[in-house]
């Protein structure tokens, strides 16, 4: 807050009103609805509903598909996060070192930020299409009995690959800016103290990047949870047999396509709690980031 502020009765309310009104109508109200519905059980025709306390939650947590989806989501997020961070870090470190063509590399490695996940999904899907996709043919030719329409592992492979491809650029931009923020003098001092470039990286550069890395960790987990929706919806759509359902995709599939309002709402509420946890986590780190 500013030390000096305007004191005025109505003006600030007018300024803040548009945002608050939209939030109330399109955020708070639906979220409240989701919570309310998560305690209701509708009959098969959606004509009447009854208050069932936590039964939807119990049903959900003990249902095989939800558990499977939860496990898959965690595994999938870990894979996507780790791979895209590692790849981006490698590229950022190298891009930070080169003198010639640094700008071009930067451009060439970051434009993919602008590709929408579903577009990336479709592009990938076409590459793996059994009819024309060279990747599909290539993998089979190489001896891998590859079919992502039937095999859960293969399907996971496809969406992880696409998700990583899409996320590398964001991580790259942040890592590169993090690297550039390290003072030159520190790196010069390190060069005098330590001859091995690799050792220098792990003992100096990487610890100095820790704030960026923690921050990206949260960003990437959020991405893997939520934004991969578009990728999954244009590739596997949860197939085969729900093996690639992330929790978010399952909310959509159950609630919107399957019309199980109570169950889908209960899943939504669980997701809200997960987001809350992530956000608290993130703010903790950002606070710490200030102090390094």
């Amino acid at each position: 807050m500013k030390r000096v502020q305007y004191e005025h009765s109505i003006v600030p309310y007018l300024f803040i009103a548009p945002q608050i009104i939209i939030i109330a109508v399109f955020f708070i109200w639906p979220a409240g609805q989701a919570m309310h519905q998560s305690f209701l059980l509708e009959d098969a025709f959606g004509l009447s509903s009854q208050f069932v306390w936590f039964r939807n939650y119990e049903d959900m947590v003990w249902s095989e598909p939800w558990l499977q989806s939860a496990i898959f989501t965690v595994m999938f997020s870990a894979l996507v996060t780790f791979l895209s961070l590692a790849l981006a870090l490698l590229l950022a470190v190298r891009a930070n070192e080169v003198l010639r063509g640094a700008r071009s590399y930067k451009t060439m490695l970051m434009w993919a930020y602008a590709v929408a996940p579903p577009v990336a999904g479709l592009m990938g899907n076409l590459m793996f299409n059994p009819l024309i996709g060279d990747l599909y043919k290539g993998l089979n030719w190489a001896g891998w009995d590859f079919n992502h329409n039937i095999d859960a592992f293969d399907a996971t492979f496809v969406i992880v690959l696409i998700s990583v491809w899409k996320q590398v650029s964001v991580n790259f931009i942040f890592f590169l800016s993090g690297l550039q923020a390290i003072p030159n003098s520190v790196m010069e001092a390190a060069t005098l103290d330590c001859r091995s470039a690799e050792k220098r990286f792990w003992t100096i550069t990487f610890p100095l990047l820790a704030p960026t890395t923690f921050f990206l960790l949260v960003i990437n987990i959020t991405y893997a949870f939520f934004e991969t929706f578009g990728i999954i919806d244009t590739t596997t759509q949860g197939a085969p047999g729900g093996a690639t359902n992330t929790l978010v995709y399952k909310v959509y599939a159950d609630g919107f396509l399957g019309a199980d309002l109570g169950g889908s709402s209960a899943q939504s509420v669980i997701l809200m709690i997960m987001v809350l946890t992530l956000t608290v986590f993130q703010f903790r780190f950002i606070e710490r980031r200030v102090h390094y």
Partner: peptide, 14 residues
């Protein structure tokens, strides 16, 4: 805390 993904159905209804 309330990304669209966690309130798909009710948002649609509103």
């Amino acid at each position: 805390l309330l990304p669209l993904e966690v309130r798909i159905v009710p948002s649609y209804e509103v």
